[in-house]
Write a protein that binds this DNA or RNA. Sequence first.
DNA 1: TATTGTTATACTCTATAACTATA
DNA 2: TATAGTTATAGAGTATAACAATA
Lengths: 156, 156
Amino acid sequence: MGAAFLLTQLGTHCASKFAERVQAIGLTPPQVGILGLIARAPGQSQQSVATTLGLLPSRLVAFVDDLEDQGLVERVRSSKDRRNYALELTTAGKRKLAEIGRVGAEHEKDICGVLSESERAELIATLRRLANDQGLIAGVHPGFRSLNRARGAEAS
Amino acid sequence: MGAAFLLTQLGTHCASKFAERVQAIGLTPPQVGILGLIARAPGQSQQSVATTLGLLPSRLVAFVDDLEDQGLVERVRSSKDRRNYALELTTAGKRKLAEIGRVGAEHEKDICGVLSESERAELIATLRRLANDQGLIAGVHPGFRSLNRARGAEAS
DNA sequence: TATTGTTATACTCTATAACTATA
DNA sequence: TATAGTTATAGAGTATAACAATA
């Protein structure tokens, strides 16, 4: 069993576990990505967020609708270019983001509990090398775009 | 960025890359899993394969249909219990399995190319520890069952 | 004419449930 | 009555394309 298959296996498992955790606080993984992106660069347009996450604009609308219904995000019409919205986090949105951080920390602990702190650091360093080599963008999940068929099974 | 998120990110990427490679030889990832399972234990029933892979029986039928059309798998009626089939690999199926092995090796090389052999071995050992700790079954992909929503985005 | 956001529609994938044949 | 395999149907999730408003 090679490293690539183990990565697929563990990656799928991690994604699934994380999805369960954020579902418990009323969010989907893409919404977590959206909230994080707005926090990093407030005032972004929906187009900008969609492009970064590799989400179709039409899908983003529904996610942002829900976030707005939950009172976590605000759509503010830009006065300069009234075609686009500036996305902002509300106070509740910032609180939710902190909550996501706690959930993420629990998740990390769940997954890496068997490792010592130095082992975990070494694993992170190795994974980061692989991710860089593959051209993956730090902090941006590659799985939101049309990759439904993209699940692997062991080769041999 | 924690190890859990990196695993999700890399895992999704690996799954996607592997899916592309097997598609080039006319297979989907679940079919690769099915072929491998039949190779390990020839004569299994479809029910058995479906249970192991976490696939619904109704989904399995279509996959096996296609494998049979490609001449890779044979459905042989069991003479003892004529309700179930014994799944067998044809000669072409065994050849295809060897091909899958080569594709898997290329895939491993693509993903781990930047690592030295000892680094790769250490990574495999660490990942195996994590997988065991999480209760994952060696060689069986956890992503075939109703986990569509199970994709993660970075927490913070 | 091009772009942002939106809605409407179509399509794919997956799950549920009904059906047959054997036991 | 229960089980293996199959088929039919319905549902969820996603992509494509048309639309209104603004530039």
